[in-house]
Design a protein around this nucleic acid. Sequence first.
DNA 1: TTCTTGACTTAGACTCCGTCCATCGTAGGA
DNA 2: TCCTACGATGGACGGAGTCTAAGTCAAGAA
Lengths: 136, 136
Amino acid sequence: MSDLLERLRGRGWRMTSQRRVVAEVLDGDHVHLTADEVHARAAQRLPEISRATVYNTLGELVSLGEVIEVATDGRAKRYDPNAHHPHQHLVCSRCGTVRDVHPTGDPLADLPTAERFGFMVSQAEVTYRGLCPSCA
Amino acid sequence: MSDLLERLRGRGWRMTSQRRVVAEVLDGDHVHLTADEVHARAAQRLPEISRATVYNTLGELVSLGEVIEVATDGRAKRYDPNAHHPHQHLVCSRCGTVRDVHPTGDPLADLPTAERFGFMVSQAEVTYRGLCPSCA
DNA sequence: TTCTTGACTTAGACTCCGTCCATCGTAGGA
DNA sequence: TCCTACGATGGACGGAGTCTAAGTCAAGAA
Ligand SMILES: [Mn+2]
Ligand SMILES: [Mn+2]
Ligand SMILES: [Zn+2]
Ligand SMILES: [Zn+2]
C-alpha cells in the first residue's frame, strides 16, 4: 500500500494531506470499511477532513482500480483495498462480518453462452452467506 | 402465483385488497420490480394504496420465502417472485436491467473447508455483471 | 346480521447513505 | 514568490427505506 501513493502521484494526482490520510486508513488486508468508518478514522489524524472529500477520494480510488466497492445488502457500501488479488466474500448473515475467500473454479466459465442473452458479461461476483463462529 | 393467496390465507393472513393487489402485480416470471414500481402498478388498480403498505407486504412475502430480495448495488432493491426455482442474476452495469440465469456448477462446492473459517455457510449468491444488448 | 377487536393501512415525518454545489484553499509548476 | 487550476469544505439536497400515531376494516363471536 505504501506504493499506492507513488502510483497515484504517477497518475497526476495532487498529493494532499486528505488523500494521504485516506490511503493510510485503507492500508492492510481484510479491511472492509464503510465510507463513514473511513471518515471517522481519517478524522482522528486530520480532524477537519470532510465527508465529501472521503467520498470523492474513495470514488477516485475505485475508478482507478485501487479499491473495490463491496455492496452489502441495504447497508452502506464497504471499501476494500485488496483489489489486486481477486477474491470473493463470505458474509455473516447475522452480524455482517466480511471475510475474504478464494473459491476454486471460475463462475464466469459456468455461464453458458445460451444463458448470456447477448450481454457482454465481464464479471462474476460471488457472495457466500452463513453464520460466523461467534453467531452460530 | 394464484395459489400464493391460498398459501397466505393458510398462514393466517387477513386478506385485504392491498395484499391481493401486491400479489397480483408480482405475478409472472422474470419479474424484478423495485418497491416503487410495485407501488405504481398497484396504484393503477387501487389508487390509494400507500408506499408503507407495499413495503410491509413485500417484507412479509420475503420473510415467508415467497419472494426474493435482489440487492443491486446502490440502486433500489428488486423483488423477485420466482422464489421456488433457484437461479442467479445477470445485471446490466449501465441500465440496471436484471435477467434470470442458470449457471452450471455449484459455487458452494467451490468453497473448500479451509476457506470457510468456521462459518456455517448456507448460501452462495452469484451476480454476473456486464452490458446488455441495448447498452453495449 | 351486527358487534367487537386487534390486525392492517395510511400520510407524513424521519433516518441513513450518498451526491451536488458554491466557495475557499493550496500543491506544485513557472 | 506568485498563479491558478485542482482539490477541499460544509451544507443543502435527493432517493430509498423505516417508523409512528391515528384511523379503518376483516373476520370470528354471538
Ligand atoms: Mn475483500
Ligand atoms: Mn430472478
Ligand atoms: Zn456473525
Ligand atoms: Zn443496459
